[in-house]
Design a protein around this nucleic acid. Structure first.
Lengths: 340, 340
DNA sequence: TATATTTGCTAAAACGTTTTAATATACCGC
DNA sequence: GCGGTATATTAAAACGTTTTAGCAAATATA
């Protein structure tokens, strides 16, 4: 890769004594259609190869309106769930010639709106978003404007969009039933004070399981906008106040991690004093002593569905763009923390 | 954010009955310099505000040659170390109006070369790279071409570039000395078969510590291109063959994690049978039983230095662009796994 | 031989900015 | 009332593509 003065398609055309139009047609594979002679096609391609010409992507984008860039907004790229999904999405996107412009929303509505503006200014071709609360209108106008958008991890019930989520309610229902079957009676649900669909559904599943077995509800909602220190404090406080609990379901992996820290500090035994299940599996839960039962999301499948839907929308004619709502199943990985 | 037909600066000018040039000058804060009357400036700004005009970033980039995009290449965005650094870099970049185009290199030389081409085609203004082996020439030509590049986590001794790394040799030296002081005699180093600077330096530190104490070397190099399953197999095999070991230093966090899995499977006791220290701290090491001593990299500081250097290079005149080689210190977090 | 069709290629406009160089008017001193 | 300078604004070129519409020559049709 040597950085000479960059050649333009006009330079190229001059060198070949033909018009830029012809070069462009050849390069865009429209030679047959435009009846460029095979001789000339070959001459162009050979020369392009020789001088190592690369078109200016900006100029192409300006002219065509297509950037081949996908905007990816996740809650937090340093979260293991989101970074794993992002990794897989990136891989598949690059394979189809798309690049990823990314950002973390922090679940912050205003920040997200700004970021959407940035993406729009940059004219990304499509959006992949794990949306915070309060951006329904913005998502709507994108969708109504015919711009490909795929939501994941959560969605807005009020607006029709393509989205890929998991069966949150069923997942937490099954987890809680598992706890009940292993003898737990006072089961807490530690979650975020979030109205996002995935959080609400997880709550519903928890409540349904308890109701069906006539058990007491113990819900602790923690504000999303806390650092890890404070989350631990709140959980510690909750556990100290509620000293009759015998199990906890954590609604996200980082709540689970903070919970484990709190439990360790309080010197409680898992699962004897307290059985544990957490959403979102990862290596920590596997290696922990005792190992932690987790609701594993099908990360590969999520990424696969998200990018496939988006690429289809990007490349297929509008009439095929029916909205898809994909609901994937989780996998309850039973480990020692939930068996009394 | 409503998606009307997008207005151009020309439309705006027509509506105001002035020339696009004037609008452009006002919008770029060059009104004073260009002696646009205060009246007109106000009229323009008011109208821009009213119609919600946003300039087309592509056209701007095409004209100015600046994209306000930074290309970020990390080894693997789903690795906790890299995703944490990426997160912080992203945050600071956005604050200065820069966006991040990112990708994972997989430490794959060819893939990385392709990705560099993609970034160049997209005309990113600057590069942040944790480089794989074999891209010295590509990095050289960027640097020689006057394009801002900052390497991190590792660098190339043969070429002068700005880079931000940690004191790898000293860090592993100190870790090994720690193990020796707590009575270990047969200390293994499990690392990657990598010629990258950080890996070589970590190896050097290990060897120097052993040599100074006349102890036996036990180095296990694992190929980078393995999935986690195979890494565990190799470590298990190594541990089985070398049954006289009493301590291990892992050269990266995921080697550490795989090592813990292997150790668990072999039912060895930490630290009684085997003391453990790993590079790169994260929550798993803190919560593990016993907790795992780790060499923590100063993630905040790394991100801060990287982005500061890059932004300076992007915004300061060329003459100030002296290369900086930053070496930061790690923090050996002593936990139970390394105290016999 | 005149007319239509196909073949092979291109000129010029367009995308939406920024920037250079210029113009036109007003003001000033003398 | 004339040269000079400051003031206020703009026309046009440039960035590097793609694409529309069209031209000329060659071939087919009648």
């Amino acid at each position: 890769m040597i950085l000479k003065k960059k050649l333009s398609i006009v330079d190229l055309a001059k060198q070949l004594n033909i018009s830029p139009t012809t070069v462009s047609f050849v390069l865009n594979g429209r030679a047959k259609e435009k009846r460029i002679s095979d001789d000339l096609v070959e001459r162009v391609l050979k020369h392009v190869e020789e001088v190592g010409y690369k078109p200016n992507a900006l100029a192409q984008s300006l002219r065509t309106g297509k950037t081949k860039i996908i905007g990816l907004m996740v809650e937090d790229i340093s979260d293991p769930f989101f970074s794993s999904v992002a990794r897989l999405i990136e891989e598949k996107a690059y394979k189809s010639g798309y690049k990823i412009l990314y950002c973390s929303t922090d679940n912050n509505t205003e920040k997200t709106k700004d970021l959407l503006d940035v993406f729009r200014d940059r004219q990304v071709d499509g959006y992949i978003i794990s949306p915070p609360e309060g951006i329904e209108d913005e998502v709507s106008s994108l969708v109504n404007g015919g711009i490909p958008v795929v939501l994941f991890d959560r969605y807005f019930a009020e607006i029709t969009t393509d989205h890929v989520v998991i069966n949150n309610e069923e997942s937490s229902y099954n987890a809680v039933v598992g706890l009940i079957n292993s003898g737990c009676k006072e089961i807490a649900f530690i979650t975020l004070d979030s109205l996002q669909s995935q959080m609400q559904d997880r709550l519903k599943g928890y409540e349904r399981a308890l109701n069906e077995h006539s058990l007491n509800h113990h819900v602790k909602e923690i504000s999303f906008f806390q650092d890890s220190e404070n989350i631990i404090k709140h959980i510690t406080n909750f556990l100290t106040r509620k000293d009759n609990l015998d199990a906890i379901l954590f609604a996200t992996n980082y709540l689970g991690v903070s919970g484990l820290k709190a439990i360790k500090a309080l010197d409680l035994k898992i699962p004897e004093d307290l059985a544990i299940i957490s959403f979102d599996d990862y290596s920590l839960f596997e290696l922990h002593s005792p190992s932690i039962t987790a609701i594993a999301q099908p990360i590969e499948e999520i990424a696969e569905k998200v990018i496939t839907i988006l690429l289809n929308k990007l490349n297929l004619p509008a009439k095929y763009k029916k909205n898809q709502a994909i609901v994937l199943s989780t996998n309850l990985i039973l480990r020692n923390s939930s068996v009394k």
